[in-house]
Computed example of a mutant assay.
Amino acid sequence: MSDRPPELISDLGFARVDHDREARNGVPEVVFGEGKRAEQISAIVARLLARHQRALVTRVDEARAEAVLRDHPDGHYDPVSRLLHWGRAPQTLPGSAAVVCAGTSDLPVAEEAAQTLEWLGVHAPRLSDVGVAGIDRLLAHRQALTRADVLIVVAGMEGALPSVVTGLVNSPVIAVPTSVGYGASLQGVTALLGMLSACATGMSVVNIDNGFGAAWQAAGILRLAARGVQDTPLHFASPQDTSGS
């Protein structure tokens, strides 16, 4: 048996799979599927499964998903979220990240967030179609909203829902603008600018339609909470400073 350590990078020519990412971040590299051919996705997934026993591919259409699943039939594809995945996190993180969705048209982005959270080992309850046009639909669930440890709030049009939710809760809110809306919504730019301009404190914003990014951030918050705060304060010192002061 060889004592040679496993390679940190799998060079496939068209892609360099970063196997060290799990050691650094706690999660294997996630594959952005849009723009990749099915055979390229399949080759990357093969390396990830061989080394990490799990894989997640985002933004995959049904035709390419079916082709990849012929090579790796143990996976699961969801046409709403367009996620293709194998395996799950080895441990479940404590707490929950609720995914709140303004309208049915926002569900693809909301489900991308929710199912990414579940793949990362996070409990992700959903609350759908509670946009501000019928605010009573949201307020009927106010008690449940306050029990969530993190909230991901997905909205298009003018992007008002995250501000309202942030004003109701004492937990971090991650706002996700979507490209849903009529002409002046500018394919999500209006919602993005509205969320960035919100006066509600405790809200952060990710890019347009980026449910995956919101889920990653929410999981990171819960992972940090589970780890606990460092007992000693952190100080940055020059490498030449050996005084310990």
Rank of each mutant, 00 (worst) to 15 (best):
I44A: 04
G13P: 08
N25H: 06
D11W: 11
V31F: 02
A38G: 04
Q40H: 07
V27Y: 11
A43P: 08
H19S: 04
A43H: 07
G26N: 10
V17M: 11
I41P: 00
G35I: 09
I44S: 04
R24H: 10
F32G: 04
E39I: 01
G26L: 11
R16D: 14
P6T: 12
K36W: 06
P6G: 14
E39W: 03
I9T: 05
S42D: 09
G35A: 13
L12M: 10
L8D: 12
N25A: 11
E34P: 01
V45Y: 00
V17I: 15
L12G: 10
A43Y: 03
I41K: 01
A15F: 11
V45A: 03
E29Y: 09
D18A: 06
V30Y: 09
G26S: 09
G33W: 04
V31T: 04
G35F: 09
N25K: 07
H19K: 02
Q40C: 00
F32T: 02
G33N: 06
S42F: 01
E34S: 13
R24K: 14
V30R: 15
E7S: 13
V27P: 13
F32I: 04
S42I: 01
H19N: 05
I41F: 01
G13V: 10
E7P: 03
D11S: 14
Q40F: 00
G26R: 08
A23P: 00
F14A: 05
V27S: 14
P6D: 15
D18W: 05
D11P: 10
R21H: 05
V31K: 03
G33V: 02
V30H: 10
G13C: 12
L12R: 11
V30E: 12
I44Q: 12
H19P: 01
R21Y: 06
E34M: 13
L12P: 11
A43V: 04
G13W: 07
R24I: 12
V27I: 15
D20Q: 13
S10D: 15
V45K: 00
N25T: 07
E22H: 14
V45C: 02
E34I: 04
R21D: 05
F14Y: 07
L12N: 08
L12E: 05
E29P: 01
N25P: 00
R37N: 02
V30N: 11
V45M: 00
D18F: 03
G35D: 12
F14K: 07
E22D: 14
I44G: 02
Q40W: 00
A43W: 03
R24C: 12
P28K: 14
F32N: 09
F32W: 12
N25Q: 07
D18R: 08
D18P: 01
R16H: 11
D18C: 03
Q40P: 00
S10C: 12
D20N: 08
G13F: 09
V17R: 08
E7Y: 04
D20F: 09
S42C: 08
F14C: 05
E22C: 14
A15I: 04
K36Y: 08
D20H: 09
V27H: 14
A23V: 05
S42Y: 01
E29I: 05
I41V: 03
Q40Y: 00
A38H: 02
P28A: 13
R16F: 06
F14T: 02
V45W: 00
S10T: 11
F14V: 02
D11C: 13
E22W: 09
V17K: 10
L8N: 07
V30D: 10
D11Y: 10
A38L: 04
R16C: 11
G35R: 14
F32P: 00
G35W: 09
